[in-house]
């Protein structure tokens, strides 16, 4: 009897958790679809509205705004979808603009800066670890670098906000203290341990008999590492790149704290940026349920989800398939 019960319980819990995993996909997308405000939510809307729009609009016009907004609700829904591809992000104004391009640009800009700094550093360190570090030193180096991944992102954001931002502005003499470079450096700190670990594992996993062959041909240790091990580990290192990229792209607290959060399309790396994730983080708490703004934020979330999920999927498939192919020889 207990046998039957146990198996029932285990199975149902497992399926509940599978269902929730599926629900994550469903709900983020569901909320991204614009919906008409029903009666039930109207109360919540009015309650929230009085406190939410403090930043951009003074308290005096608050009531009018509410009226106008409610009136324009239906048109607005249609109109805003049309200009999702616009270059202006002004969600809270008389005529809200929901152009996602500056946010995309912000995310890419700061992520790219982060990865440009982190990738060479981390791969360099991984190469050092397998080529020059003795076994004893390597066993210390790895956990030490991985310690970096134990830092909560809010702590790294804080460090960027205080120390890095000051260093950058005194070094480059920039106009905006918080900017894409500061955010990039902070992101680099978070993704270095990820890239390092994955790249080091990839380099380490190249079978010993392959490096032996190179050494037996009279290659030096570094020639073996650069000409044999590194090329053989390319898929793993590419996966490290993707994982680092995905992590940086979705990171919220760091960019929220360190990049200045202005939605611009500027090419200047010393100007502030506003990323997709930071936009959700900054605005979601103050938005009206069911509103266009609410739906657009969920849409951003859904996009982030799809993007990072597929990066991970590619990373996983790429590594497995390519590595297997490489070493089993059906290329």
């Amino acid at each position: 009897m207990s046998e039957y019960l146990a198996s029932i319980i285990i199975k149902s819990v497992a399926f509940v958790s599978f269902a929730v995993i599926l629900l994550i996909f469903v709900f983020v997308f569901k909320e991204a679809i614009p919906q008409s405000t029903g009666d039930g939510t109207k109360v919540a809307q009015e309650e929230l509205q009085s406190e939410s729009y403090g930043d951009d609009i003074s308290g005096a016009v608050d009531n009018t705004v509410t009226e106008v907004k409610t009136k324009h609700e239906s048109e607005e829904g249609v109109q805003s979808i049309a200009n999702l591809t616009g270059t202006e992000w002004q969600p809270v104004s008389l005529k809200p603009k929901f152009g996602l391009l500056p946010l995309f640009w912000g995310s890419f800009k700061v992520t790219l800066l982060g990865i440009l700094m982190a990738f060479p550093l981390a791969v360099g360190a991984a190469l050092y670890s397998i080529t020059f570090a003795g076994r004893g030193f390597r066993e210390i180096l790895k956990p030490v670098i991985e310690l970096l991944s134990g830092f909560p992102s809010v702590v790294i954001g804080f460090f960027a906000l205080t120390t890095v931002a000051s260093a950058v502005s005194s070094f480059f003499g920039v106009t905006y203290r918080l900017n894409a470079v500061v955010g990039g450096i902070a992101l680099a700190i978070t993704i270095v341990p990820i890239i390092f670990t994955v790249a080091e594992d990839a380099l380490q996993s190249i079978p010993k008999h392959i490096s032996e062959a190179s050494l037996a041909l009279g290659a030096t240790k570094w020639q073996t590492a650069v000409f044999v091990i590194l090329p053989a580990a390319t898929p793993g290192i590419f996966a490290a790149f993707l994982l680092g990229f995905g992590r940086a792209f979705g990171e919220t607290m760091i960019v929220l704290m360190a990049t200045g959060n202005a939605a611009t399309m500027s090419l200047n790396i010393f100007e502030p940026v506003r990323t997709l994730s930071a936009t959700i983080g900054a605005e979601m708490a103050e938005v009206v349920f069911g509103d266009t703004h609410y739906s657009v934020l969920f849409l951003i979330g859904a996009l982030l989800f799809v993007f990072t999920f597929s990066l991970n999927a590619i990373a996983e498939f790429w590594v497995r398939k390519r590595l297997l192919k490489k070493f089993q020889g059906s290329a």
Partner: peptide
């Protein structure tokens, strides 16, 4: 230099990928 002069073939064939 020594290993260039004294080459080695292993039990398990190990071509580079």
């Amino acid at each position: 230099e020594l290993r260039k002069k004294v080459g080695m073939i292993f039990q398990k064939s190990n071509p580079f990928p």
